[in-house]
Amino acid sequence: MTDLRVLRGGESSPTYLLLHGLGATADVWHGLTGLLGDASWEAPDLPGHGGSSSLPSYSFAGVAAAVSSLIDPRGTVIVGHSFGGVVGLHLAGRPGVLAVAGLGIKSAWSDEELAKAAAMAQRPAPAYATRAEAAQRHLRVAGLEGLMFEAPDAAVVETGDGWRPAFDQRAFGIGDPQVEALVAASPVPVVLARGEHDRMVPASSAPVALPGLGHNAHVEDPGALLALLSTPPLRPPV
């Protein structure tokens, strides 16, 4: 069983299950959760990230299974960024899931890109002399440089040879997300969105564009994402 670090808040249904991107932690959702009022929300560090334990091996289905117990049977809207968005699509058929919002999901991967990611997964995690250096590495891997100026405590760990990001680099090798097949198979509504200037995700992969924003649109402008979540089908009728 995977031990998860989970941030929580609010009480009213439906619950928003917030799934961060590769290399990040649940802390990236602070801006959005501060705008949700009394709405119930849960934001885990995904396995191999932050304060959550690692998996023996990584697959999108395996990560989804590890967080599936967080689905609120009263009704859950899943909001996932990039890697977390694919995990959310794997949860679409679970009881209680009402809809899935995928933000910044890179759906098309070349053989070269997949091979590069697999090679990164084989590299030993770098160690640094100071926490500040490890924290900077965390922000760089998560694409958060310039967006978050301080890494959360859970993002780095002290080891016998110094400091390193808590992220398990083996997760880089998770493989092709096969997004189109997941969307086609989803029994609940799926909304795919991207920041207008997201260089990783072409407009053809995500019909909804958030103006003026990049890959980490949820961090850049949480209000823009909140506006998206306030429209059907992501805001189910009461």
Rank of each mutant, 00 (worst) to 15 (best):
Leu4Glu: 01
Gly10Trp: 04
Ser12Met: 04
Ser12Lys: 14
Ser13Gln: 09
Thr15Arg: 12
Tyr16Pro: 05
Leu18Trp: 02
Leu18His: 07
Ala26Arg: 01
Asp27Met: 05
Trp29Glu: 10
Ser40Tyr: 00
Pro44Lys: 03
Asp45Ser: 01
Pro47Lys: 03
Gly50Ser: 09
Gly51Ala: 02
Gly51Tyr: 01
Leu55Asp: 07
Pro56Cys: 00
Tyr58Pro: 15
Ser59Asp: 11
Ser59Phe: 02
Phe60Arg: 09
Phe60Gln: 09
Gly62Lys: 09
Gly62Glu: 12
Val63Asn: 08
Ala64His: 11
Val67Glu: 10
Gly75Phe: 00
Ile78Lys: 04
Ser82His: 00
Ser82Glu: 02
Phe83Ala: 04
Leu89Pro: 15
Leu91Ser: 14
Arg94Ile: 05
Val97Ser: 13
Leu98Asp: 05
Ala99Gln: 11
Val100Ser: 11
Val100Leu: 10
Ala101Tyr: 03
Leu103Tyr: 03
Lys106Glu: 13
Lys106Asp: 07
Ala117Asp: 14
Ala118Lys: 11
Gln122Glu: 15
Arg123Gly: 01
Arg123Gln: 04
Arg123Glu: 06
Ala125Phe: 00
Ala127Glu: 14
Ala132Ile: 10
Ala134Asn: 05
Ala135Tyr: 00
His138Trp: 02
Arg140Gln: 14
Leu147Ile: 02
Glu150His: 08
Pro152His: 03
Val156Phe: 00
Val157Thr: 15
Thr159Ser: 11
Gly162Asn: 10
Trp163Gln: 09
Arg164Met: 12
Phe167Cys: 06
Asp168Trp: 03
Asp168Val: 10
Gln169Asn: 13
Phe172Gln: 09
Phe172Val: 12
Gly173Trp: 03
Gln178Ile: 00
Glu180Ser: 14
Ala181Ile: 05
Ala184Pro: 14
Ser186Ala: 15
Pro187Asn: 03
Val191Leu: 08
Asp198Cys: 08
Val201Phe: 04
Val201Leu: 09
Pro202Asn: 02
Pro202Thr: 06
Ala203Arg: 15
Ser205Gln: 15
Ala206Thr: 12
Ala206Tyr: 03
Val208Trp: 02
Val208His: 06
Ala209Thr: 14
Ala209Ile: 10
Leu213Asp: 03
His215Ser: 08
His215Ala: 08
Ala217Glu: 07
Ala217Ser: 14
Glu220Pro: 13
Glu220Asp: 06
Asp221Gln: 12
Ala224Asp: 05
Leu229Arg: 13
Pro233His: 05
Leu234Trp: 06
Leu234Arg: 11
Pro237Val: 14
